[in-house]
């Protein structure tokens, strides 16, 4: 067995150092070494997209990349998508449109969709379908996923603040903000 290697990478905004065996995939490192189990395993052959993460701005199947290749890279996983108190607009739209049934494919779709919207903020339906064609969903027939991504794009384009909050109803911070605003008005 080859010796473990120290790898430095930026994961979800944090500089991180980890030890990994040269034969471990990035997916294995994320799930088993770093305990980031949000990225899912559906095939390990690059066919299902459940393991999709964003590496230096590009969506990649983390099952096809070795952990050691993460050296010096910036990696985003589904765990880093939401701000601490606020969902990403894609997450919010997936919930509103009931775009997940079992939800195992959802992290991968969210990351592929984010990579799409980052480089093409106004995609057509065909462009959305093309960008998501590497992600398999067996539950939904894709209809509600495509709608959610289109809606998210529109929300972002209109400059509207996404309505997304962690939990239902306004978040605690937002409630405080509102309260302060009301005080000011008075």
């Amino acid at each position: 067995m080859a010796k473990k290697v120290v790898v430095e990478a930026n994961i979800n905004g944090e500089p991180i150092e980890f030890l990994c065996e040269p034969r471990q995939s990035l997916l294995e490192v994320l799930r088993d070494v770093l305990e980031l189990t949000g990225s899912k395993e559906g095939c390990l052959t690059g066919d299902c997209g459940a393991c999709t993460v964003i590496v230096n701005g590009r969506p990649l199947c983390s099952c096809l990349m070795l952990g050691v290749e993460a050296q010096g890279k910036t990696i985003q996983t589904v765990e880093g998508l939401a701000a601490p108190d606020r969902l990403h607009v894609l997450q919010q739209k997936f919930l509103e449109h009931a775009s997940l049934q079992c939800g195992i494919c959802t992290p991968g779709f969210l990351m592929s969709a984010k990579a799409l919207l980052d480089r093409n903020p106004k995609p057509t339906e065909a462009e959305i379908r093309y960008a998501l064609a590497g992600n398999l969903c067996r539950c939904t027939g894709y209809d509600k996923i495509v709608r959610a991504v289109a809606d998210a794009a529109q929300t972002l384009a209109s400059g509207q603040q996404p309505a997304g909050h962690l939990g239902s109803g306004p978040s605690a911070t937002e409630q405080t903000e509102r309260f302060l605003q009301e005080q000011e008005v008075k």
């Binding site: 799930r31 088993d32 305990e35 980031l36 189990t37 949000g38 990225s39 899912k40 395993e41 996983t77 589904v78 765990e79 998508l81 939401a82 969902l87 997450q91 997936f94 919930l95 509103e96 009931a98 997940l100 939800g103 195992i104 959802t106 992290p107 969210l110 962690l166 939990g167 239902s168």
Partner: peptide
């Protein structure tokens, strides 16, 4: 009606535990 599912947040943030996620 069409409320947001109760287990939705966990599932869009990667927190939900599927069988392979148990260690």
């Amino acid at each position: 009606t069409r409320p947001v599912r109760h287990d939705g947040i966990e599932k869009v943030t990667g927190q939900a535990k599927y069988g392979a996620d148990y260690n």
